[in-house]
Amino acid sequence: MTGTTYSVLVVEDETMIRMMLVEMLEEIGHTVIGEAAHLEQAIDLATGINFDYAVLDINLAGRSSLPVAQIIKSRKIPFVFSTGYGADAIPTEFADNLAVRKPFTLEALRRTVHSLMTGANA
C-alpha cells in the first residue's frame, strides 16, 4: 500500500468483476466513490463527480468506453484501462496509458495503481 488513500471511479460492465475490483481497491486502502456499468452512467459520473483516478474497462457491454476516457483525460485525472483483450485493444491516442489485463491479481492491481499515481512506469 502506498499509505495514501485515493478516491476511485470504477467503470466495469460485468457485475462480478466490478464487485471484485471494488473489493480489491478497498483492500489496498482506496475508496470507491462511483461505480458505472453502462456508458451513459460512466459519462455522467466522469463529468459529475470528483475522484483521484479511475479504472476503466475498455468494452462496456459491446460499446467503447473511449468517450469516458476522453472526458477523464480532459479533466487531467489519471486512469488505468482494465481489459481482457490485451494492449492491442487500447487505441493509439491512449497508448501511453497504463493497463491491467484481466484477470489480474491484487498485487498486479496494486503495482499498476502505484505506478499510475506516482508517475512511474509499470
Rank of each mutant, 00 (worst) to 15 (best):
G29P: 01
V10T: 03
T15R: 12
T15L: 12
V68F: 04
A99V: 07
R18K: 12
L21M: 14
I49C: 09
V68G: 02
I43H: 06
H38M: 13
T118D: 12
I17P: 01
R63G: 06
E35T: 08
M24N: 03
S82A: 15
E107R: 11
P78C: 04
A89R: 03
F79E: 01
I43F: 08
L116D: 02
N97C: 15
V32H: 02
A54Q: 02
N97I: 01
T5D: 10
T112K: 01
Q70V: 03
A54C: 09
F81D: 00
D13F: 12
I43E: 11
Y85W: 11
M1T: 11
I17R: 04
V55Y: 00
I90N: 02
G84V: 05
K73A: 14
V55P: 00
D52H: 09
A120V: 10
S64F: 09
N97A: 12
M24H: 02
G84C: 09
F104V: 08
M24W: 04
I28C: 04
A37I: 04
R111Y: 09
A87Q: 13
Y53A: 02
T105N: 05
K73G: 06
V100D: 01
E14C: 05
Q70P: 00
R111F: 10
D52E: 11
I90F: 10
L45Y: 01
E14R: 07
D88Y: 09
G86W: 11
H38K: 15
T83R: 00
M1A: 13
A108T: 13
A61W: 07
F94H: 06
Q41E: 15
A36P: 05
R110E: 15
E12W: 06
L106R: 11
A69G: 09
T2D: 14
A89T: 00
H38C: 07
L39E: 08
N50A: 12
F94S: 02
A46C: 10
L106A: 06
M24G: 01
R75G: 07
V100W: 01
M1F: 12
I71W: 09
Q70F: 02
T47K: 15
I72R: 03
G3P: 10
T92R: 10
V11P: 00
D44M: 12
I72W: 04
I58L: 15
A61T: 10
F104T: 06
I43S: 04
I33S: 05
G48Y: 06
S82L: 12
G84P: 03
F94K: 03
V11A: 01
L60Q: 01
A95V: 13
A69N: 07
F79L: 02
P103N: 12
S64M: 08
G34E: 07
A87K: 15
M117Y: 11
Y85M: 09
G86I: 02
N59P: 05
T5V: 14
D96F: 06
A89I: 03
I17E: 03
E107Q: 15
E12N: 07
A69S: 13
T105S: 15
R110F: 10
S7T: 15
K76L: 11
Y85C: 06
E23T: 14
L39H: 08
T112N: 02
